[in-house]
């Protein structure tokens, strides 16, 4: 089951670190970083059902 409740302890710190990682990168380099990050995270999760739920969750926007 995908955990969609708050789960990151230092949430503001994490958010800042994520944005910092993109600091100074052009759009292409940022896209590449995001792709690598997604792959690393996806492998850590591993659970195929959870990954499908995550993709689905990300595709559902409020707009």
């Amino acid at each position: 089951m995908l955990n969609s409740k708050p789960n990151i302890a230092d949430h503001d710190g994490f958010y800042a670190e994520l944005l910092n990682a993109h600091e100074g990168l052009d759009e292409q380099a940022s896209a590449a970083l995001n792709a690598r990050l997604i792959l690393v995270l996806a492998n850590h999760i591993g659970d195929r059902d959870v990954l499908s739920q995550a993709i689905k969750a990300a595709k559902t926007t409020s707009k």
């Binding site: 292409q28 896209a31 590449a32 792709a35 690598r36 997604i38 792959l39 690393v40 492998n43």
Partner: peptide
């Protein structure tokens, strides 16, 4: 464009991260 981004990300990581090699 984006499928190329992911493809290159896989290849980039493959050298150092074993987990991407099956991809």
């Amino acid at each position: 464009g984006i499928s190329r981004v992911f493809r290159d990300a896989v290849l980039d990581l493959a050298q150092t991260h074993e987990f991407t090699r099956p991809l």
